[in-house]
Amino acid sequence: MIRLPASIRAACVLAVVSALAACANRAPTQFYTLLAPAEATPVPAESGYAIELLPVVVPEQVDVPQLVLRSGSGALQPVDTRRWAAPLGEELRTALSARLSARLGVRDVYRLASPASLPLYRVRVRVGRFDSVPADYALLDAGWSVERRDDRSVRTCDARYREDVGAGIDALVAGHQQALARLADDIAATLRRFDAGGCPDTRT
Rank of each mutant, 00 (worst) to 15 (best):
M1Y: 05
S7Q: 11
A11T: 03
A11N: 10
L14T: 00
A15S: 14
S18V: 00
A19N: 05
A19G: 11
A24P: 00
N25V: 03
N25D: 08
N25I: 00
A27Y: 00
L34W: 05
L35Q: 06
P37R: 09
A38K: 13
E39C: 12
A40P: 01
A40T: 03
T41H: 01
P42K: 01
P42D: 02
V43T: 09
V43M: 12
A45M: 08
Y49H: 08
A50D: 12
I51H: 05
I51K: 04
I51C: 13
I51W: 09
L54N: 13
P55Y: 06
V56E: 13
P59G: 14
V62Q: 06
Q66V: 03
L67N: 09
L67A: 13
V68S: 13
R70P: 01
S73G: 14
S73R: 12
G74D: 03
G74Q: 00
Q77Y: 15
Q77E: 12
V79S: 10
V79I: 07
D80M: 05
R82C: 14
G89L: 06
G89V: 11
E91W: 03
L92C: 14
R93C: 15
T94C: 11
R99N: 10
A102M: 12
L104K: 01
V106D: 13
V106K: 07
R107Y: 05
D108R: 11
R111Y: 12
A116G: 15
L120N: 04
R122T: 07
V127M: 12
G128Q: 15
R129E: 15
D131A: 09
A135Y: 08
L139S: 05
L140C: 07
E147K: 02
D150M: 09
R152A: 15
R152W: 08
S153D: 10
S153P: 07
V154A: 05
D158K: 12
D158A: 15
R160F: 03
R162V: 09
R162I: 09
E163T: 08
V165M: 10
D170M: 04
V173Q: 08
A174G: 04
H176L: 11
L180H: 09
R182D: 08
R182W: 02
L183I: 02
D185W: 00
I187A: 02
A189M: 06
A189R: 00
T190P: 03
L191K: 02
D195G: 15
D195M: 11
A196F: 05
G197K: 06
R203F: 10
R203N: 11
R203S: 15
